[in-house]
Simulated scan of single mutants.
Amino acid sequence: MITLVPYHQDERLPDASFPLPGLDLIPVTRDLPDGDVWQRVAALFELVSAEIADQVAGGTRPAVVSGDCLTAEAVLAGLQRAGVDASIIWFDAHGDIHTTESSTSGYIGGMPLRQILGADRELLADRLGLRPLPEDRAVLVGARDLDPAEAEFLASSEVRRCPVDDVALPDGPLLLHIDVDVIDAADLPGLKFPVDGGPSYDAVVASVRRIMATGRVAALDIACPWHPPEDGDDALRTRLLRDLLSA
Rank of each mutant, 00 (worst) to 15 (best):
D231C: 04
P112K: 04
D10E: 14
S207L: 01
Y107N: 14
P62K: 09
L123S: 09
W38S: 12
F18E: 06
D147M: 13
D187W: 00
I222C: 06
A16P: 01
H177I: 02
S102T: 15
G22I: 02
P170Y: 02
G83R: 08
P148K: 07
T214I: 04
G83Q: 11
L70F: 03
R61V: 15
Y107V: 11
A72S: 15
V159L: 10
F193Y: 15
A125E: 09
V204L: 06
D202P: 00
H227R: 14
D126C: 08
R209C: 01
G67N: 03
R61W: 02
D54R: 15
A213S: 15
E101R: 12
A223C: 03
S102A: 12
G59T: 08
V208E: 02
R81S: 12
E51N: 13
T214F: 03
E158K: 15
L146F: 08
K192N: 14
H94K: 09
G78I: 09
I108F: 11
F153A: 06
D171S: 14
A213P: 00
G118I: 01
A185Y: 01
T104L: 15
L174N: 08
A219Y: 12
R131E: 15
A138Q: 05
A53W: 11
D166R: 11
L175Q: 09
S246I: 02
L169P: 01
D96K: 06
S207C: 01
V75L: 06
L32M: 07
G190C: 02
V180D: 02
V65F: 01
R12F: 14
I97W: 11
V41H: 05
T60I: 13
H177A: 07
W90L: 04
G190Y: 00
L133E: 02
A151M: 06
L124D: 11
V64D: 05
A143W: 00
